[in-house]
Amino acid sequence: MVARALLLLIFITLPFFPSFASMCVKCHKPHYEKTGSCAVCHRGNEDTARKNIAHGGLITKKYADFIINGKAVENGSKTADSAHCRRCHITEGRGNDVAPNLDTESRRKTAETLKEKLIKPTDYMPDFHMNDPTAENTVKYILNAGGSAKSVSRTAPYVVFITQGKKSVFEEKCGGCHRLLTRKRGGTGHGDTAPNLSGLFSGFYPADTVKAEGNRWNGEILVKWIKNPRRIKKEALMPPVLLTEEEEKSITAEFAN
Score class of each variant (00 low, 15 high):
Ile53Ser: 04
Asn144Gln: 13
Ile226Phe: 04
Lys173Ser: 04
Glu245Gln: 14
Pro195Asp: 04
Lys166Ser: 12
Gly76Asp: 07
Thr104Tyr: 03
Phe201Leu: 13
Pro157Glu: 06
Lys249Ile: 10
Arg87Gln: 11
Lys115Tyr: 04
Thr13Ile: 15
Glu92Tyr: 12
Ile67Asn: 11
Cys88Met: 07
Asn257Phe: 06
Tyr205Gly: 09
Arg185Tyr: 13
Pro206Gly: 09
Leu181Gln: 07
Glu46Gln: 13
Asn137Ser: 10
Gly176Ile: 04
Lys120Pro: 00
Glu248Met: 14
Ala72Glu: 09
Thr134Ile: 11
Asp127Trp: 01
Lys227Pro: 03
Ala5Lys: 14
Cys88Val: 01
Thr13Leu: 15
Glu74Pro: 06
Leu222Arg: 12
Cys27Leu: 11
Arg94Phe: 15
Asn196Gly: 05
Ile10Lys: 13
Glu246Phe: 04
Ile53Pro: 05
Val223His: 10
Lys166Arg: 15
Pro157Cys: 01
Gly219Gln: 10
Asp47Met: 05
Glu136Tyr: 00
Thr209Ser: 11
Cys41Pro: 09
Asn69Cys: 09
Pro240Phe: 11
Pro240Gln: 12
Lys224Asn: 12
Thr163Ser: 15
Asp192Asn: 15
Pro121Asp: 05
Lys115Met: 14
Ala54Trp: 08
Ala256Tyr: 02
Arg86Trp: 01
Pro229Met: 03
His42Ile: 01
Ala49Thr: 15
Ser37Tyr: 10
Lys62Ile: 08
Lys224Gln: 14
Met125Tyr: 04
Lys249Asp: 14
Leu7Pro: 00
Lys166Phe: 03
Ile119Lys: 08
Asp47Pro: 04
Leu180Ile: 01
Thr113Arg: 10
Ser77Gln: 14
Asn228His: 10
Glu246Trp: 01
Thr244Leu: 07
Glu220Arg: 14
Leu8Pro: 02
